[in-house]
């Protein structure tokens, strides 16, 4: 398999097919990464589109000395953070609980794709994993996602998150501690 760096340099030289190759290689990792952070499919789709747009717009900024995947994940990370900040500014919509209720209650609208629709799903470990992951603080979640789901080493994670190696170790350690405390009792129960 060709190296990312090689393909990117071809694209920089003007080979459009190289872009297609990059897109095929990274469309899924980018989507899953964005979704894990944003917990919203619509936002994740938008961010993935923006990631590749930025790649095309700033291809000249890529330096061959840097690892391509780290560079791309850094773009995705920054765009996700922007999206999270932007979403915080939006006022939540008020919904009626039901038609007869006079009192209004604020409801957060999660992506229903990952809510347990059936009792069987409620017994599925992955549901609890996703829920536990969602509860983690953003930085810890990012670090553990990049490590477990995308296989980045600590040094690259530090570059994406713009923090030191020591901090990355602490983030991953704490994330695993929390997940262990959350998941182990549930996993025992499911056994």
């Amino acid at each position: 398999m060709r190296k990312d760096k090689e393909i990117m340099m071809e694209y920089k030289s003007g080979d459009i097919n190289a872009l297609e190759e990059i897109f095929q290689r990274y469309k899924r990792p980018m989507l899953n990464y964005a979704f894990k952070l944003l917990n919203n499919y619509a936002d994740a789709e938008d961010v993935v589109g923006e990631v590749f747009y930025v790649l095309t717009a700033q291809k000249d900024a890529y330096q061959p000395q840097a690892k391509f995947s780290t560079w791309l994940y850094t773009i995705a990370h920054n765009l996700c953070i922007d999206r999270i900040r932007k979403n915080k500014k939006i006022f939540p919509l008020w919904f009626k609980k039901n038609k007869t209720d006079k009192d209004y209650e604020e409801l957060d609208i999660p992506d229903t794709k990952f809510l347990p629709n059936t009792p069987a799903e409620e017994k599925d470990t992955s549901f609890f994993v996703k829920r536990s992951l969602e509860k983690l603080p953003l930085e810890q979640k990012e670090a553990i996602v990049l490590r477990e789901y995308h296989g980045l080493n600590y040094e690259d994670i530090g570059k994406v998150l713009n923090c030191s190696l020591e901090k990355v170790k602490i983030l991953i350690f704490r994330a695993r501690e929390r997940l262990r405390k959350e998941l182990l009792p549930l996993m025992e129960e499911l056994k």
Binding site: F23, R28, S126, K130, Y149
Partner: peptide, 24 residues
């Protein structure tokens, strides 16, 4: 760690791929 990686994530459907392409 093993539990985490069981979640393989979503595939990118053709529709989704097209939408992403349109975007960027």
């Amino acid at each position: 760690s093993f539990a985490l990686i069981q979640d393989k994530g979503e595939d990118v459907s053709p529709d989704l791929e097209q939408r992403i392409r349109n975007n960027f």
